[in-house]
Design a protein around this nucleic acid. Structure first.
Lengths: 221, 221
DNA sequence: TTGACAACCGAACGGCCGTTAGGTATATAG
DNA sequence: CTATATACCTAACGGCCGTTCGGTTGTCAA
């Protein structure tokens, strides 16, 4: 990752700020308007910033700027739907009513209101993480994590975040499904490692991390 | 906030899912492509969904869909209730403060006051069993139950009882130690079966069952 | 002096953008 | 029967979108 010039850095900073304010990356011309440049000049900069690895230009057309390392998800302040569900959780000093969102299948949004199947009040001592953190519970389907002691039907408590560190167990969106895998960052891609010797790792240039598993639980009988 | 029709909800769900996957809301035509509709039909839906207050259409042009989370706070069961005497005693209608007794060793009475290392408040939904049942938490040592997804260091929630049914996972006193094993009654004896193919079963003419495992939990990080 | 790099410009391309207008068909309520 | 609402359609508008092309100016190192 080469270094950016001063100008490039100013542009990148502004783009990040814009995204924070609006929840969306700016268009090329919006950047140009702010810096008093032609769209083609901005485009030159973006190409260079991309070549140096600080942004990616997606295949989605309009506004598909991505800033790796920053939130994939909208504004910190005004943010998106998931928050409402999470914030509705009863919160006191000792415990937290964590929403359970069921087995998440194709295309169904993780935290839409109508997916909340119930809430489980969990002790703070089981939830590593800062005070404001947000959590949800997911029922795991499949055997891909058996060797990590997560069986088919187990529930995992997930702390909402869109980054992860190497080796952490994450919930990530792959195409249309939420999967639970171990997360490893490699050069230029990400490896999602199942804990099952009969399954191979999944590689992707980017994944939408939804959160990291902080706790797993299972009931018997 | 009026209710959405089924179709409208499906669209909203997909939009939220799209945003989670790509970090950006979809365009009108992207929605249309997924549902096989013309862009104008999608637009109709969006207008209605907006009128019902579930989304906002920003002034930014392309992709400026916003999903305000706020409003719907239909805070379900578990919202802030005043601390009652019952709760102080560790028992209310929804949860129970379950004592943790650590790695239980020789001959020491399981639930003596001085063994209690702490309490974890657990949701009733995780505790199968009648209202008056007693529970405790045990930290499991060793690998004897790995194939049942109980790893070294995991905690199990145990319902106090001194009988068990075939196949249940029990806490039993063997000589001077508490072990966690699967319980089977055979003619004239009892078999305690580990969930680890490298270990053999234990046979005993009688065992002191302390309780059955109703829940297991593990924290990460 | 040559050449690479940064930092711009204007003009244009084809296409996708949100949006409007005007229509059809179906269902449900008064 | 009428009215209202949902759920779509085709066709088009004006404009913004990312992107390309060919150019200019300056700076710094070889």
């Amino acid at each position: 990752m080469r270094e950016l010039t001063r100008k490039q850095k100013k542009i990148l900073d502004w783009v990040v700020a814009f995204k924070a304010r609006h929840g969306l990356p700016p268009t090329v011309r919006e950047i140009g308007a702010h810096f008093g440049m032609a769209s083609s000049s901005v485009f030159d900069h973006l190409k260079l910033i991309e070549k140096k690895g600080h942004i990616r230009r997606g295949k989605l057309g309009a506004r598909s700027l991505e800033i790796p390392g920053a939130a994939t998800d909208g504004a910190p302040a005004g943010a998106a739907a998931p928050l409402s569900v999470l914030e509705a959780a009863g919160d006191d000093s000792e415990s937290l009513a964590v929403p359970e969102v069921g087995r998440v299948a194709a295309g169904v949004p993780l935290l839409a209101q109508e997916n909340v199947e119930g809430r489980v009040r969990l002790d703070r001592s089981m939830l590593r993480g800062p005070r404001g953190a947000q959590y949800f519970i997911l029922r795991v389907t499949g055997d891909s994590m058996v060797e990590a002691g997560i069986l088919d039907g187990d529930r995992v408590v997930v702390r909402r975040q869109d980054t992860a560190e190497d080796g952490q167990i994450v919930v990530a969106l792959l195409e249309d499904e939420a999967t639970v895998k171990r997360f490893y960052r490699e050069s230029g891609r990400v490896r999602l490692e199942p804990a099952n010797s009969r399954m191979g790792p999944i590689y992707a240039r980017e994944v939408a991390v939804q959160g990291v598993v902080v706790c797993s639980l299972r009931t018997y009988g």
